[in-house]
């Protein structure tokens, strides 16, 4: 019954889903790891990235490079928006009670999603696959769309780039230091406030990019922000909040559990994922690769 090509197809689809989730969850995890704020509005950045990509495609019109310009433009636009939000609003939250973080970021979700509704209405929007990656090829009897292959390659590339930046560069060292002890870093003469803005901009960029890249395979609708934030949250809880490789691992596990879960419990596809999250929370509340909070 279960022939190998089918199992291969399921694992590939799980991997693709994992790469999308990683793109989005990594920003959420980064902001929490460094700024110690759980940014519920991260899913909204993802949604705005998707809408912006749609808008730019509409402006430029069809062409071979349109989608890529739109994706990059959308990600940069969301990065700028993130920067402004951090500079003007977010910074008043640092060191405050978590309840304020929750209230503020949730308010941001409501305001930004209403703004999106005013700008783009409630009708579903769709973006085509970029012409160069519209087709598909067959591998071991499995049809793999080129666009999925691109996502499969992009995910690890971004993960490695990220890791390199965090481990091998001066800025990366500061970011890691800021995650551990903000005050000491400040007394050493590092511009912590600028660093925080930078981290937030980077996370917003990733969220916006995730939203833009998802448009060829999903529909752009109001409410896509709250759907993704729940999934991203599950991923970071499994992997460990603030842990970079934990997020990657969490996304991989999420993708595979969802893909194969429907074989075990066809009627409860989402159950497997939440069962896993519950198990992780009971056995390792700080996540698979996370560190217990002091």
């Amino acid at each position: 019954m279960l022939d190998p090509s089918f199992l291969f197809a399921q694992s590939l689809s799980g991997l693709t889903a994992a790469m999308f989730l990683f793109l989005i969850a990594s920003g959420l995890s980064l902001v929490f790891g460094v700024l110690r704020v759980l940014n519920f509005a991260h899913g909204t950045f993802y949604m705005l990235g998707a809408y912006s990509a749609y808008q730019i495609v509409l402006w430029i019109g069809p062409g071979p490079g349109t989608f890529w310009v739109a994706a990059l433009g959308a990600a940069l636009g969301i990065a700028v928006l993130g920067g402004l939000i951090e500079r003007l609003l977010f910074r008043h939250l640092y060191g405050k009670e978590e309840l304020y973080h929750l209230l503020f970021t949730y308010a941001l979700v409501l305001i930004l999603s209403d703004a999106a509704k005013i700008l783009w209405g409630t009708q579903q929007k769709s973006v085509s696959r970029p012409p160069g990656l519209a087709g598909a090829f067959t591998l071991f009897g499995v049809t793999v769309p080129y666009y999925n292959l691109f996502i499969l390659l992009l995910g690890p590339a971004i993960a490695l780039g990220f890791w390199f930046m965090l481990q091998r560069t001066r800025v990366g060292r500061f970011i890691r230091a800021a995650a551990l002890d903000r005050e000491t870093l400040g007394t050493l003469g590092v511009n912590v406030s600028g660093l925080y803005t930078g981290v937030f901009v980077l996370a917003s960029f990733l969220g916006g990019l995730g939203g833009a890249l998802v448009t060829p395979v999903r529909t752009i609708v109001p409410g896509m922000d709250t759907e993704i934030i729940v999934e991203a949250f599950v991923v970071v809880v499994i992997g460990g909040l603030g842990s970079f490789w934990g997020t990657f691992l969490g996304a991989l596990i999420y993708g595979q559990v969802l893909s194969f879960g429907i074989l075990l419990f066809p009627r409860f596809s989402i159950f497997s994922v939440f069962a896993l999250m519950a198990a992780v929370l009971i056995l390792r509340p700080w996540g698979l690769l996370g560190r217990p909070l002091k």
């Binding site: 022939d3 089918f6 197809a9 399921q10 689809s13 799980g14 693709t16 889903a17 999308f20 579903q124 769709s126 395979v217 999903r218 529909t219 609708v221 759907e227 993704i228 999934e231 969802l258 893909s259 194969f260 429907i262 074989l263 066809p266 596809s269």
Partner: peptide, 30 residues
């Protein structure tokens, strides 16, 4: 659901000749 690929693969493996769907609105588009 944001990712229908696992469901699509599983359905194709059963080789149906026809399919009925009640996915609506944006869900159908995705």
């Amino acid at each position: 659901e944001a990712d229908y690929t696992p469901f699509i693969n599983a359905q194709l493996a059963k080789k149906p000749q026809a399919v009925f769907s009640s996915l609506w609105g944006g869900h159908f588009v995705t």
